[in-house]
Design a protein around this nucleic acid. Structure first.
Lengths: 343, 343
DNA sequence: CTTCGGTACTAAACCGCTCTAGTTGCCGGA
DNA sequence: TCCGGCAACTAGAGCGGTTTAGTACCGAAG
């Protein structure tokens, strides 16, 4: 015979299925003595609830969905996702909630998956990452009426809950630091221009120009690949007036940029300062090590999961959680510009 | 009213639930005309199957489980997992099979999760990674009687199916190459000694000593972290007779080792050759770029998923798939040893 | 001695779908 | 004309839980 069911337990103990259900779920309706007997027998028979059966009765699926729309090749490069995943897991598994993960091609496919998982009751809620400018996903999710948390913000995602870090403030802190070192020509090798946080960082840099009296402040968008990061760096360093500092939107691109500088004979940090958004082991092990904006991605995952669980528990609620702003960790890739580089 | 059910469709079309079920599942028992009407109405009402209800009837869960027992911090570092995941997804989603992912602390917790997911019918099969020496998971899985695929081999995992690459052959190809360049003292900064593939690589190196007349061939186990990779490198380079070549079990450790060499004033590849197992963007963007054993991890994921689906389809079958042996991609971190380093 | 209220429990409906065992109606063949 | 056989469909029993309505019993209060 297959797995034991509550009917088997009921028969063995000599009570009804209902009594067994009450006992196993710790709700009133059975005496302590009977409850103990039932629990005893359940353990003895190695009984486990059948999640599908529970779900049928309208209960939770005890799982959340995370769909990532990025080319598979890009995914592996970023330590970010793996860290985030781990953090999510850690918090979710405390409540025995599992995670359904899927990597798809684009937003359209992503929405399709949301529709299917929602109506198939596979998950209790969704975690959305990489919010975009005019993102069609938010509307689709709201329409489905399923709890969701957006990683990113503030604003721009309708009535959904969100967890976000202040990208603007982070970028300003980098630029302030570089300006204080004496840099006047600062460039930015950005990520995908469709992402909201990319836009926010670009805007923050642009806004700094007047405020700090910078000469130049250009943002070059890329696809986060090392190839485009290297190409953008090459372009920047080939200009007549090259920047004295470059801020990269990811650690991989910063590393690629470092390589290009070396290849072009540009000394770091003597002639060029390099800063990376998001640090990881990479920024530590290179030579020179890379100054970067650091945040605890694992903890971030935990916070997102926490909000997700709250929103699932009370779907009418809405949370807007601002997490710690990434702080600048200064390593060996930044220094004052050489004096002959002054204007 | 909530989501439409087949009963709603049945009522609307004026047939029985059974007829609707037959029609929607493309099985005989209804006329083509009726089937068309039913499909039409189903689409119109935006009906989707309720996975729990299906699962209750004994059908597949249409999901596979992947539980990873590694500290969360290590996970983010390795591009390997993200790539593998993407590859798995790509193949699984072709068949509309989802993936349940969980990161846990240790093998005991992993087995616990297998028990729960299996008896709760959450998944149709498991994918096991990181096979260890005397691994308790295989027995547990066999006992559960759930289809499973082990990533790693050959041998050592009982009756379970497996997908593996020839670590021994790969290591031999590296050592052969280094020996051909003239290296006689080759060291190995290995991964976790509990992993079977670590053992296999260490043994392959040891076996090469006599065959190739190497002077020295030591393997230092680590936990794959950049810190231990750096420490091991420091220890090796501090010896009286330092190795002229070091093989690292991961790209991150190779990168860390490169940093240590630079810090100790040891020129790469002039005085020290560096080779990494498993390459990724990291080995390409560093300076010097790192010679490494390359394999298509994305494709590997696809192959594992393929075997998983086969084994689920026919649980009595057993597959043992050997994948392409990683091939050596020579970059700029390897060269003949300086002549004064000879014995 | 009845009545009330509460506890401990049972029986059965129900969740959405699948699948088996019938039932009906129609057609062809003897 | 009647019967067998097949196609098309229906009724209803499960799947394994949860939950509600109902019952039996007991002690205390009137």
């Amino acid at each position: 015979m297959g797995r034991p069911t509550i009917a088997d337990i009921a028969q063995r103990v000599g009570v009804s299925k209902g009594a067994v259900s009450f006992a196993l779920n710790g709700r009133p309706g059975v005496s302590e003595a009977t409850r103990a007997r039932i629990l005893e027998v359940a353990r003895e028979m190695n009984w486990r609830p059948h999640s599908a059966a529970r779900a049928l009765g309208g209960a939770r699926a005890e799982a959340v969905g995370l769909v990532i729309a990025r080319p598979a090749s890009t995914l592996g490069v970023e330590p970010f996702f793996a860290q985030l995943l781990s953090g999510l897991q850690a918090r979710l598994s405390e409540q025995q909630v599992a995670m359904h993960l899927l990597v798809v091609e684009d937003a359209a496919a992503e929405i399709q998956v949301y529709r299917e998982w929602a109506s198939a009751h596979r998950v209790d809620g969704f975690i959305l990452v990489d919010p975009q400018v005019r993102d069609p996903r938010f509307e689709a999710i709201e329409e489905l009426g399923v709890p969701a948390v957006v990683l990113g913000g503030p604003g721009g995602h309708g009535s959904l809950s969100c967890v976000w870090a202040d990208d603007r403030e982070a970028m300003l802190s980098v630029v302030d630091y570089l300006a204080a070192l004496g840099h006047r020509r600062i460039a930015h090798v950005a990520g995908l221009p469709g992402f909201r946080h990319t836009q926010r960082r670009m805007r923050a840099l642009r806004d700094s120009v007047r405020r700090l009296g910078l000469v130049d402040a250009v943002s070059l968008p890329t696809d986060y690949s090392d190839a485009e990061g290297a190409a953008a760096t090459r372009a920047l360093l080939s200009r007549g007036r090259r920047p004295t500092a470059i801020v990269y939107d990811s650690d991989v691109m910063a590393l690629a940029g470092l390589g290009v500088a070396m290849e072009m004979g540009v000394r770091v940090p003597g002639e060029l300062s390099v800063v990376a958004f998001d640090d990881s082991v990479l920024t530590r092990v290179t030579h020179p090590s890379i100054t970067s904006l650091s945040r605890d991605t694992f903890a971030l995952g935990g916070q997102v999961a926490g909000v997700m669980l709250e929103v699932i528990a009370d779907p009418s609620s809405r949370r807007d959680l601002k997490t710690a702003t990434p702080r600048l960790v200064v390593r060996h890739s930044t220094a004052p510009p050489a004096s002959w580089q002054d204007d």
